[in-house]
């Protein structure tokens, strides 16, 4: 079985986000970018499937600007076998919407014929939480979102999902699309020798046009605002004062 892992290049989760003065979005020029944290978990899971003999090949794919090459090299350094970069934008501020990403991924799936797609549950930039579900719809495949445990048994997979009420386990028909949650695994760091080796692994470059997908956004960004800042409060000296303050406010 081949495993396809879509990985997105996003602002590093430690970076303090700044809204651009003109309201067009968030400033991404000269900002540290990394692989979306959920996608690291997806890559890790794919590599573990390969190590367990359940997968033969792990292919990472990223859609966006040319710089997403770096993100793919990280996936290769972690242990993916090869990578596909689909260039769909020139400006680092252009975000390709999940619907367009899913359409491109559907074409890649057609070409690559993976038995499993492991995506992140959510990209931490647009916080959309949509691409895996959309890809699954376009392919007419089963889906298992927010996975904290994945167990592949022949032509089906048992997946435990983190849901509002707790945990739900479902069984899905293969091929399937799984989106991974935080507690599925702890991703490995790429070792220096593996980072060197990754430079020689194949990285194919394509464009959205090669797949005939129109990436024009459906959602026009009207504006981007800073959220309302909270007013700084006060430090209370002791528990008695805290209790008095809360009583005064009528919340306890």
């Amino acid at each position: 079985m081949k495993v396809l892992v879509p990985v997105k290049r996003v602002i590093d989760y430690n970076v303090k986000v700044r809204v651009k003065a003109d309201g067009s979005g968030v400033d991404l020029a000269n900002v540290k970018m990394s692989m979306n944290p959920f996608d690291e978990i997806a890559v890790e899971e794919a590599i573990r499937l390969k190590e367990a003999g359940k997968a033969e090949e792990v292919v990472a794919v990223s859609i966006g600007v040319k710089q997403a090459q770096e993100t793919l090299r990280t996936a290769l350094a972690m242990g993916a076998d090869r990578a596909i970069l689909v260039v769909a934008a020139d400006d680092v501020h252009t975000d390709i919407e999940p619907l367009a990403v899913a359409k491109i991924l559907a074409k890649v799936v057609e070409e690559e014929q993976p038995g499993l797609v492991l995506a992140g549950k959510q990209a931490i930039d647009n916080d959309m939480n949509a691409t895996g579900q959309m890809l699954s719809a376009l392919l007419g495949w089963s889906q298992a979102t927010f996975a904290s445990d994945v167990d592949i048994e022949g032509d089906s997979a048992k997946v435990t999902r983190e849901v509002d009420g707790g945990l739900q386990t479902i069984s899905v028909k293969m091929p399937t699309i799984v989106t991974v949650d935080l507690r599925l695994n702890e991703p490995r760091y790429a070792s220096l020798p593996n980072i060197m080796k990754a430079k020689k692994k194949p990285l194919d470059e394509k464009t959205a046009a090669d797949y005939g997908v129109d990436v024009t956004p459906r959602l026009e960004i009207v504006k981007t605002d800073e959220p309302e800042a909270r007013q700084a409060g006060e430090i209370v000296p002791d528990v008695d004062t805290l209790v008095a303050k809360l009583k005064e406010k009528g919340v306890v």
């Binding site: 602002i11 986000v17 959602l219 026009e220 009207v222 504006k223 981007t224 605002d225 800073e226």
Partner: peptide
């Protein structure tokens, strides 16, 4: 809708 963990609020207009 909030984006970037609520660090920005984006107003979007759908053409769908």
């Amino acid at each position: 809708r909030p984006i970037y963990a609520g660090n920005a609020i984006q107003t979007v207009k759908s053409s769908d």
